[in-house]
Structure formats: structure tokens, C-alpha cells
Computed example of a mutant assay.
Amino acid sequence: MVECVVKDWEGQETGTASLELKVASEENAAHIVHRALVRQLGNARQGNASTKTRAEVRGGGRKPWRQKGTGRARAGSNRSPLWRGGGVIFGPKPRDYSVSMNRKERRLALRTAFYSRSEDWVVVEDFGDKLPQPKTKDLLNAIARWGISVDAKILLIVSERNENVYLSARNVPNLRMISASNLNIHDLLTADRLLVTSSALQKIQEVYGD
């Protein structure tokens, strides 16, 4: 179980929150998280890179010059991989990069990754009502009051999307906002700090606390 301090909009401590999730054992944690990360990055690849072999390149049917007597190296086609405009040797072809992983393993990896970042959590009260209209400057000031550098790569986790919070956050280049039910390994591992609302923490416990 992890106990963490909850801060209000002004940055003052107002209480504590706890989270208890089943995570992978210490000797298996790095392996299963790595597998989940490789799976996510692989599944995101389109895999549509394609080059033509010498058989697929247009032209090259006629022998460029006779076999002997010219003093030049023998050549059978001007679409040889050795020629400019020729085919490509061992070039990429369309392929599927997707990796399969059991659902239970994926969820275990996600819980383990989130739990491992507990020292980087900043838990705050829901602040949607503090932004009656979209205001990026007000959100940045609040982030600074919560003790997070505005230059850090921040992952904002909310229970459900609030339009004013979203519009205030989208102009910050190093801030990414996701909902608690859509967590993913890559965002959890690449962020410098995790800014989590108290309701999002409860939702994570409900969704992933199996």
C-alpha cells in the first residue's frame, strides 16, 4: 500500500490518499514491464515500409552491352542492385510488428509500472471547478504551487475529461492529459512527474485493483 499527501488548488496539504494494487514480484517486474512496453511500441508501428527488388523495378530487360570485348565489367541488367535506380538488396517489406500479450499480464505490467513511480506522484484535489474558463496560465501557476517544475515532462491523470482543464492543458508542450481508465505503459514510464487527481486515484483502484 502507498500513502500519499493530497494537495488543494493552493498547494496546501489537505489530507492523505492510499492505493493498494497487486504488482509483479521484484525479480519479474522489470521483465514484464519491458514486454508490455515492447508490445505497445510494436503495435503502434504501421509496418508499411517497402522497397523493390531487382525483379520488381521497371525496366532492365535488355543487356546493357555485350558480355566480352568492351573492357567493362559484365552486366546483365541496368536494374541490378549495383546500379543507380536498381533494386534494393534485403530492403524492408510490409510486415506486422504487433506482439501478443495476455490481458492479465498487460494489467499486471500496468499496475507495476504505475506503482513503481509512486515517488513521482503528486496527488491533488479535483480542480475542474477552479477553471471556470480555459486558462493555461492559471494551470501553470497551480502546477508550480504543487511543487512541479513547469519544464518537467508531466502526465496529468484525471478520472474523466473536463473540457476547461483539457483546453488549459493542451497548449503546454510537455504536459499530457489522459483518463485513469486509459493508462498506458509508455506514458507512465516516460513522464518525469505524475500529476494525479484524487478521484483518478480512486478510479485506478477500482479499474485495476483486481
Score class of each variant (00 low, 15 high):
Met1Glu: 04
Met1Tyr: 06
Cys4Arg: 05
Trp9Val: 02
Trp9Ile: 03
Glu10Ile: 09
Gly15Ala: 10
Ala17Pro: 10
Ser18Gly: 13
Ser18Val: 14
Leu19Phe: 05
Glu27Cys: 12
His31Gly: 15
His31Leu: 08
Val33Asn: 02
His34Phe: 15
Leu37Cys: 06
Val38Ser: 03
Arg39Lys: 14
Arg39Phe: 08
Gln40Asn: 10
Leu41Lys: 10
Gly42Pro: 08
Asn43Gln: 13
Ala44Ser: 15
Arg45Asn: 03
Gly47Ala: 06
Asn48Arg: 11
Thr51Val: 07
Gly59Met: 04
Lys63Leu: 03
Pro64Met: 08
Lys68Asp: 09
Gly69Pro: 05
Thr70Ala: 09
Gly71Ala: 10
Ala73Pro: 14
Ala75Pro: 05
Ser77Arg: 06
Asn78Cys: 15
Arg79Ile: 11
Arg79Lys: 13
Arg79Thr: 14
Leu82Ile: 15
Gly85Asn: 10
Lys93Cys: 06
Ser98Ala: 15
Ser100Cys: 11
Arg103Ala: 15
Arg103Asn: 12
Arg103Met: 15
Lys104Thr: 13
Arg106Gln: 10
Arg107Cys: 14
Leu108Ile: 08
Ala109Met: 14
Thr112Val: 13
Thr112Gly: 08
Ala113Trp: 00
Ser116His: 09
Val124Glu: 01
Leu131Tyr: 02
Pro132Met: 08
Pro132Tyr: 11
Pro134Thr: 06
Pro134Ala: 02
Lys137Phe: 05
Leu139Thr: 00
Leu140Phe: 02
Ile143Val: 09
Ala144Asn: 13
Trp146Glu: 00
Ala152Phe: 04
Ala152Gly: 03
Ile157Met: 04
Ser159Cys: 08
Val165Asn: 01
Ala169Trp: 00
Leu175Arg: 00
Arg176Lys: 14
Arg176Asp: 00
Ser179Ala: 12
Ser181Pro: 01
Asn182Ser: 15
Asn182Ile: 13
Asn184Asp: 14
Asn184Arg: 03
Asn184Glu: 05
Asp187Gly: 05
Leu189Asn: 01
Ser198Gln: 10
Ser199Asn: 09
Ser199Lys: 11
Gln205Tyr: 08
Asp210Gln: 11
